[in-house]
Write a protein that binds this DNA or RNA. Structure first.
Lengths: 323, 323
DNA sequence: CCGCTATGTGTTATCGGTTTCATATACGCC
DNA sequence: GGCGTATATGAAACCGATAACACATAGCGG
């Protein structure tokens, strides 16, 4: 069943059928004739043929570092909640934190001729910039700031800063910080810098070195908490780059009979479910992950429609959560 | 840059270039000539045009109820880990637990002419069966058993049965069960039935009624635990259909100063990170979610290659986890 | 009543490949 | 040498839509 068959059955030309589906000018009479045939046959135009001719795939490509993660899961759900209402579909690629793959998938999307790309990024290398520059379609970056590109990101720095200040307000003096890799500019560098600047502003510049870097897993949080405690005697507050790490820290503290919050106050960041099920619950920071996904698609849609977008950078707020 | 341009530059026909990319018979000389031109120009055949002609999109559609969920996230990662190594791409749709949407997306995939579909399902309605029957491409179902279809699922029943038995072995007598909706045959019905049969086999058939149904959230687990405790006085063990619910239960118990595990032993199912960060950790069941995703894609690939698949149903094992 | 624009409609080229078909050449064998 | 078979190759049809173009008709102002 192709457009020509339908045209014959309705006694019109194939162009008329095409116009029927694309809001072209068409007399009432023919519209009715075509509608009847379409209903009878259940005919739907071939997406492939349309794509070949129009160069529009109605697909957007989304690249994420992983998907089994609370924060990224929320971003993806935000993206899909908007896409669901549109005629667009989503191609998803997961890089498993491999920057090489990130570049590969962007190229694959290029070949597939997706109409646009959303990149949930962690680090940027020269290779990234090169591939991004060559992409002939609009891109929106989520979670990181990259100069010259449309991006939606979080105020990691101030959130971390405020969180650290809060620890001082609660009377904690000897803070430690469990960090993510510095090459991750947002979750790694910015959050750590917030901690550093806050302790400096409080006149405790010596705390800046009270840090250890962990991976984004509970197990790593557990292990690195041990290292941090060994390194910094007398710690009474622990701030972590993510809730996952903080949950690992809680495990460690409990096993080693260090009382939370009496002896040690613990905070994570991300406001995940996990932060609420430890005992006691973590102090944490709510970043609007789902919202960032939503905004990213909306920006992308604007780019797709108008070829340009006034708001190029969106920094989202945060909220400290104490249960 | 299309195939004709390349052909001209290499001094051959467009058919020769097509054969070059499709392992057709071609003389060394021409192969070399084409290779040079392709390298110089960076030419890549248009996926759209290929698709139009061959009817193969090299895309598979994946439908999931949600993505910000530990178990489903793992399934999706399993799927992608295999897809990454192939030339296939993944179209992802999220139904937000709306069976209506499930049907919609299957149709959308149909139109997009994906080569195959993986359906991570929760419930099956008559509408599901109808749409599935009309799908002209292979389908693999994950997480549920559906007669007549290729499916990969878990032994929910025996896992839940064994878990319940374990509670008796640990000397618990008055058990309660926090269930999922019964129309979810796997997580809802099968797990509950495992509980029921186990308590009956232990001569405690009266416990069968000690149940309340909760949603897949921490908050719901919290709330329904209250209801369950009000309903069943003297409970000393609580088994939940999922870790998420169980984490909510832990919250409730802690707030109401009910000692875990002394007064109340608590178990979840799913072996998520969340089960390991409550204090104390939950008893839980490990289902191989990632593996189920992997197997599903592998079955689908087999179906794509041979049009048929010998192993139609795969039931995966489980392992009870006590930390 | 003429010419101009606006609208409706069909014809046909086009998007960029793959595949069929016909033809050409080389090879092996009787 | 003749014939069957295997391999190499290009011309052209084809996949199923859209869009440029041509043309017809209608409405309208002068």
């Amino acid at each position: 069943m192709n457009i020509v068959d339908i045209a014959k059955m309705a006694g019109v030309s194939s162009a008329a059928v095409s116009r029927y589906f694309n809001n072209g000018h068409l007399s009432e009479k023919k519209q009715e004739a075509i509608r009847r045939v379409v209903e009878e046959t259940g005919y739907r135009p071939s997406v492939q043929a349309q794509t070949l001719r129009t160069k529009k795939t109605k697909m957007i490509g989304v690249v994420v570092p992983k998907v089994a993660s609370a924060s990224i899961g929320k971003i993806v759900e935000g993206i899909l909640s908007i896409l669901n209402e549109s005629e667009y579909q989503m191609l998803l690629a997961v890089t498993q934190n491999n920057p090489q793959k990130e570049v590969e998938y962007l190229s694959a999307f290029h070949e597939r001729q997706v109409d646009g790309v959303i990149l949930v990024a962690t680090v940027f290398t020269a290779a990234h910039r090169r591939v991004l520059k060559e992409l002939p379609v609009p891109v929106v970056i989520v979670g990181q700031y990259l100069s010259g590109y449309c991006c939606v990101f979080h105020d990691d720095y101030h959130a971390s800063y405020d969180l650290t200040k809060l620890f001082f307000e609660k009377g904690r003096k000897k803070l430690g910080y469990l960090s993510a890799l510095q090459k991750d500019k947002a979750v790694g560098a910015a959050r750590y810098k917030g901690f550093c600047d806050a302790v400096r502003d409080m006149g405790c510049a010596d705390l800046v070195g009270n840090t250890v870097t962990a991976a984004f897993t509970v197990a790593s949080g557990y292990e690195k908490t041990g290292e941090l405690l060994a390194k910094c005697a007398g710690m009474d507050g622990l701030i972590c780059a993510t809730d996952t790490m903080a949950a690992g820290a809680m495990q460690y503290l409990q096993e080693h009979h260090i009382a939370v919050p009496d002896t040690m106050l613990v905070a994570g960041q991300g406001d995940s479910d996990m932060a609420r099920v430890t005992a006691p619950p973590l102090i944490t920071v709510h970043y609007s992950y789902e919202k960032s996904g939503v905004l990213a698609v909306q920006m992308l849609m604007e780019l797709l429609l108008h070829e340009e977008c006034v708001t190029k950078e969106v920094k989202l707020g945060y909220r400290i959560v104490e249960l």
